[in-house]
Amino acid sequence: MLRPAEERDVEAMRAWRNQDANREVSINSHVIGAAEHRAWWERVRSDRTRRVLVFEYDGRPLGVVNFFDIDIDIDAGSAHWGFFLDNETTTAEGTAMLAWMAVMREATDYAFTELGVDVLRGEVLADNEAVRVMNRRFRFTEGDPEAREADGRTITVIPISLRREDRRRR
């Protein structure tokens, strides 16, 4: 289940984002401090082009889905997205793959039904083969890789997109 993030979720979101497994596959891989996170939350909570949602699995908050650059145009609405899970909990409980598939299914459904976009876009690190495989399973297509500098390292980022008509339906 996805629900709007609330004030009570702010510290859990930061803790999940700062888990090593999540930082390793993020474009910005530095540890997010409390002040940086608070400033982010204050900006996004009232931004009409963003949605920050908490992913609940088995009745517990276990991840975050971010939609941003939401542009609902009658001809070609689009949004960008990303997500991360509480990797430590889902791995310890053996539910990581189930939660991962559930959050992707719910997030893509949300984008096309609740947001009403025609195209959902994102980015993945080129060396994150597990996510690239899962993206293909959900019918995302990859664009041309791009080299970038982020947090003092050179990374290769691959844009991804999923069109409404190409998505998997339940």
Rank of each mutant, 00 (worst) to 15 (best):
L2P: 00
L2A: 06
R3K: 12
P4C: 02
P4Q: 13
E6Y: 07
E6P: 02
E11I: 02
R14M: 09
R14L: 03
A15K: 02
W16F: 02
Q19A: 13
A21F: 05
N22F: 00
N22V: 06
I27C: 06
I27Q: 09
S29V: 06
V31P: 00
I32S: 03
A35V: 15
E36G: 11
W40N: 05
E42F: 03
V44T: 12
S46Q: 12
D47N: 14
D47H: 08
V52P: 01
V52A: 02
V54W: 00
F55C: 04
R60Y: 05
P61F: 05
G63Y: 00
V64F: 04
D69E: 15
I70V: 13
D71E: 12
D71C: 14
I72E: 10
I74W: 13
D75V: 06
D75E: 10
A76I: 04
A76D: 11
H80S: 10
G82I: 01
F83E: 08
F84W: 15
L85G: 00
D86G: 08
T89G: 04
E93L: 13
T95I: 04
A96T: 02
A96W: 01
A96C: 08
A96E: 10
L98D: 12
W100Q: 13
W100N: 15
M104G: 10
T108I: 06
F112G: 01
G116K: 02
D118H: 15
L120C: 01
R121W: 08
G122Q: 03
E123G: 04
A126N: 10
N128M: 04
A130Y: 02
R136Q: 14
R137E: 09
T141K: 13
G143L: 05
R148F: 07
A150M: 11
I160W: 00
S161D: 05
R163W: 15
R164N: 05
E165R: 15
R167H: 06
R168M: 07
